[in-house]
Design a protein around this nucleic acid. Structure first.
Lengths: 353, 353
DNA sequence: CTGAAAGCGCTTACAG
DNA sequence: CTGAAAGCGCTTACAG
């Protein structure tokens, strides 16, 4: 049934070794025997068995990609880049989806190791993860991207999330906002943790008091955010702007605000983070902080492939930080109120003199 | 370095065969030797090499999934279901992305065959594809879903796309629309082909003349659709409603209309197809035809797994057709104009008598 | 209930 | 330039 090297050898009248040599482009093969072998390959429709080859070469030509949620645009768009680039090197990708659960991540990794993938790429570890650092210490080719654990003893490529938050807060402050609410996802992930820290630092730099009620990091569902906003907007001290740690969250905020009858940006300003595809839709038009996720993905794969090829443990773990960018669209407005109430260093009162 | 069955055998003081037997839960193993082996496995941290096992068992425990564009929500959401379900059977998924190009699909399939995946799932063939039918004839476990080739000699699970179009057109007609433009993707894909045919049949059933200028199936980019609409809306004979063959296209239509200053649904009605996640967003709120893509994906995997397990070619190819559903939201309005101009069978003139 | 031997389909020193 | 032999890490008749 199945055509093997043995069959080729027999019909070409040479040995298995010779067949293998022409298949692998060894230089020292006489042109006439090369032709004989190739002819047999053609005739019998021979396709080398990659499983057998993997076993003997100690290399499968596959890598594992572990994502948090492939239905989330961030993960699927980065996966696309990785699959396409890997293919260029003849490498296939085994995909795992963890639903953001760390037990599932560990299981996926263990399974991939048993499958002997040549290396692993992970875009969704949580901060307290130590499994990946163990793997790093063993010298296993592994590159994290997007998120990293608290331990630095592992290779990773991430966005400068703190800087991204600073960009967002500065933009808001420049337009007169000083009461800025921060809507975050779970702080157990480094992305949110650093976005939160960046928010906190940025408002401090502007001498804006940190108000605990302005920070939300609970269940990131629409309902939960809606409840939070209702309560918040009933208080005396209301924010004038919302900085959401993801575009998805920003859109939830905008939806909730719209249902309460508010206009964005006239009543409240909203700024997001991630610049997912929907955000540029004219019906949404969200001002946001963008990251070059494709570059991140490409870089992660590149580093992983280098690690695999070198076959040796680098002295230092690889740590790369990418730059965020502010994308100004239509959801942030000027807070005139602010310019009237407080006239810091007299910028506004100038016109009165 | 690497711990193998041999190592376990030696430290447990048994033979390789015995180790293999306890690893694979053979009944006839004495409890005491089973324990000895398990202890050695534990101590040495042994993990069976799945590549070696694959070679001898003639089964890799992997399947190939070939999609048109993993960054497209349809493909990523179905991929998620497939990966999760496959995992429950201990099966891993190798993912390929074809960018809708059939050469890349063929290459992906060939590569997966060389990798000896146990079966293949494809959600993006084009109508003229014959490669998959060849594979089917060879008895290779293969299930297509979402799209199918013109040839019926292959297993597939698809939506009843013609019926979906009928649902959309009927809804529009019930609300008084008779001039309905159809905005389609490339007709080389069975999905669009059947949605187009369904549109054509449905308007015929309502005695609505087919107007060629009302049908668009060119480049599905925003710009191209915008150009088409501009030209169309300059003509004397304008549609009152747009039926788009995907939600993505419907959103393009709505964006273009909004930019021209029109209101949906007051000036024009729009209906989509697919019910992707964004469509339910309160800012979009698109009326659309929905398909249960998760069920489709699950079913496709189920059938594939059955095909793999049976190991024999079924008499007849598997053909399953799923039912579409109309989801009414806010983008379709009543065409009052229609009720005034024509008063078919006097429904409207009644009030005058 | 257990073990010796063969084999899955390749590649790679090694010898000639 | 070519071939015989060993081996990658497992499983599976087969014999005992």
């Amino acid at each position: 049934m199945k055509v093997t090297v043995k069959d080729i050898a027999r019909t070409a009248g040479v040995s298995q070794s010779t067949v293998s040599k022409v298949l692998n482009n060894y230089a020292q093969v006489k042109e006439s025997t090369r032709k004989k072998v190739l002819k047999a390959v053609e005739e019998l429709g021979f396709v080398p068995d990659l499983v057998a080859r993997s076993l003997v070469m100690n290399r499968t030509g596959t890598i594992g990609l572990i994502v948090g949620d492939i239905a989330n645009p961030f993960f699927s768009e980065t996966a696309k880049v990785i699959i396409a680039e890997a293919r260029k090197s003849g490498i296939d990708v085994i995909l795992s989806d963890t639903d953001y659960r760390s037990e599932l991540m560990e299981m996926a990794v263990k399974n991939m190791l048993a499958r002997r993938v040549d290396g692993i790429l992970i875009s969704a570890v949580d901060r307290k993860d130590t499994f990946t650092t163990d793997l790093y210490k063993k010298g296993y080719p592994l590159v994290l991207f997007n998120r990293h654990p608290d331990s630095d003893l592992v290779n990773y490529i991430v966005l400068d999330n703190g800087k991204g938050s600073r960009l967002a807060v500065n933009h808001l402050v420049q337009l007169g906002h000083r009461r800025i609410s921060f809507i975050s996802g779970p702080l157990q992930f480094s992305t949110f943790h650093h976005r939160y820290l960046g928010y906190k630092n940025a408002i401090q730099e502007h001498n804006i008091p940190y108000i605990e009620e302005f920070v939300f990091d609970g269940d990131p569902s629409y309902e939960s955010i809606n409840d939070y906003l209702k309560e918040l907007l009933n208080k005396d001290e209301k924010p004038t702007a919302f900085f959401a740690a993801t575009d998805q969250l920003a859109i939830h905020v905008m939806d909730a605000l719209a249902r309460m009858g508010f206009n964005v940006p006239l009543d409240f300003s909203v700024i997001g983070f991630d610049n997912i595809d929907i955000s540029s839709n004219p019906h949404i038009n969200l001002t946001t902080v963008s990251q070059n996720k494709k570059e991140m993905a490409k870089l992660a794969l590149e580093k992983l492939l280098a690690l695999i090829d070198e076959g040796e443990i680098p002295e230092q773990p690889i740590h790369i930080t990418l730059e965020p960018k502010l994308i100004i669209r239509k959801t942030v407005g000027v807070n005139y109120e602010q310019f009237h109430y407080e006239t810091p260093r007299g910028e506004i009162s100038l016109s009165e003199g």
